[in-house]
Amino acid sequence: MSEPIIEAENLGIRFVRNRRRQLRIREMFIHRGGRQPHANEFWPLRNVSFQIQSGDAVGIIGKNGTGKSTLLRLIAGVLIQDEGRIKVRGEVAPLLELSAGFSNDLTGRENVHLVGSLHGLSPNYLKRHFDEIVEFAGEQVSKAVDTPVRHYSSGMKVRLGFAVISHLTHPILLMDEVMAVGDAEFRKKCYDTIERLLAEGRTLVLVSHNEGDLTRFCTRGLYFDRGELKIDGTVRDALDAYNNVVRT
């Protein structure tokens, strides 16, 4: 078997709940200006280990606040771990948030060229495919394409972001609740695109609460609870573990 395209070993990241908290003089003396061992800190993920092979479709499952989106950001390199390691062997096409990485001060047209170029799409490619990208995003986006993105709804941002990201040739696709926003027509476009990308051998890591989407696209599931990886098995195994917790 070839090397995993994504590999995590004892992965952990630590957040501070209130980074502006001021230490009292007594605390600074006792702890010599360092952090208190436990005050205001938490680990959204810790001791997480797994491997994902090229072409896998993996669902990340768990309640809100269990580190799912944090894991995608670690894979994308947006966040840096405090413990362990993560190795990603391939470029990543990320759609991790509703804003899709857009600049609110730029128009939709300008953001298509900015985000596309940042991910390696050439100006000529973006020029040739611009109409196709906007058409995919829908009529509402098409009418507002020369309007600053700050005036877009969250659904419009997602549709335009997905339209751009779907043109990338990167082998790894990261998606965070993308299909939760949009009408039936947009979801069908998403489904068709994801199925095409998977048929091309892309690797998908999908965060979603939608059981239908997870079982449609993913064969494997990682179930997280309180920052720990509890189940690494079939997507059905992970969903059953999640549903058992939700029902209790």
Rank of each mutant, 00 (worst) to 15 (best):
G182H: 07
T147K: 07
I61L: 07
F42P: 13
E97V: 05
S166L: 10
V164W: 09
R128E: 15
V92L: 06
S166Q: 15
G62H: 01
K63V: 11
E27I: 04
L204T: 01
F29D: 12
G65W: 09
R236L: 11
F224K: 03
M156Q: 13
G155N: 09
P37M: 11
T70F: 08
H170G: 03
D183T: 09
Y242N: 02
E3G: 11
P94Y: 03
R109Y: 15
K189E: 03
Q53Y: 11
A100V: 06
T70E: 06
P171I: 08
D105C: 01
V149K: 03
A199G: 14
L198S: 05
L160Q: 08
F50S: 04
T248K: 14
E91V: 03
D56Y: 04
S122N: 07
W43K: 12
Y242L: 00
N124L: 14
P123A: 03
I194V: 15
F162T: 08
E41K: 15
K63E: 15
G155L: 10
F217Y: 11
V112G: 12
G201Q: 10
R73W: 00
H129C: 13
E195L: 12
D240W: 04
E97D: 12
T169D: 15
V181A: 15
L71D: 00
V145D: 10
L206H: 06
E195M: 06
D183L: 12
R226I: 02
L204E: 04
G161V: 09
N104E: 12
H209L: 07
G34H: 14
R17M: 13
R226F: 10
V245P: 00
R226Y: 12
R196C: 11
G227P: 10
I25F: 14
D146N: 14
V78H: 03
A137Y: 06
D213K: 07
Y191R: 13
